[in-house]
Amino acid sequence: MITKRIVPCLDVKEGRVVKGVQFLSLQDAGDPVALAARYDEEGADELVFLDISASHEGRKTMVEVVAQTAGSLMIPFTVGGGISTTDDMRALLRAGADKISINTAAVLDPTLITRGAMQFGAQCIVVAIDARWCADEQTWIVVTHGGRRKTALRALEWAEQCVQCGAGELLVTSMDRDGTKEGYDIALTRAVAARVAVPVIASGGAGCVAHVRDVLTIGQADAALAASIFHYAQSSIGVVKNVLREEGVHVR
């Protein structure tokens, strides 16, 4: 059977890895190529690079980071952040990325999902959905621009629409939990996974191994994304996987 995946995420700004707590107060946690290699050695199943550069130069740097990483890494990796055209996708895929993750641009123009899937294959189009619980509507609402803007989209319906448009995988981030280390939003992940027939990567809130276990079992996620618990060596990937294995979760 297929295994559950552990996916470290590296937020990259102007070629350096940073990680924010709720996207504020960024701290530098190292060189992306070196960190990627470390995660590969430790047993990461996949990596995500999220480019949070604001500048054009920063984006060009990302293509170089991708090319350097692809030359040394023997596990797949996804690149996301600020990608808004199929030309952007092509540049990163040609540089060696395996998958492209799109977020705000997909909300603004869902045909981007379809165009990407038609040109490069659905398997390399990941739609990242940032969702926040809305007490008034009693459901999760999609937010964009790093959580700063609320949309009218309901997250579960949007998830379904993304897959109909051609998304091969969904990366679902709980903006309520992101950076809190209080655990993933299990209910959100479970609701999305029940709604779509593509793999779901859960993100936002990992603080300990139990959180990872819960989202992969109760939350029915196919993969768990985490950043800070690995970057600051709170838990190594090997340790996380050993615990998961002992608890009966099928991992590599």
Binding site: R5, D45, A122, G168, P199
Partner: peptide, 10 residues
């Protein structure tokens, strides 16, 4: 099962 078949398998 999910399609694509995505991930590590033995």
């Amino acid at each position: 099962l999910n399609v694509p078949h995505m991930g590590w398998n033995a």
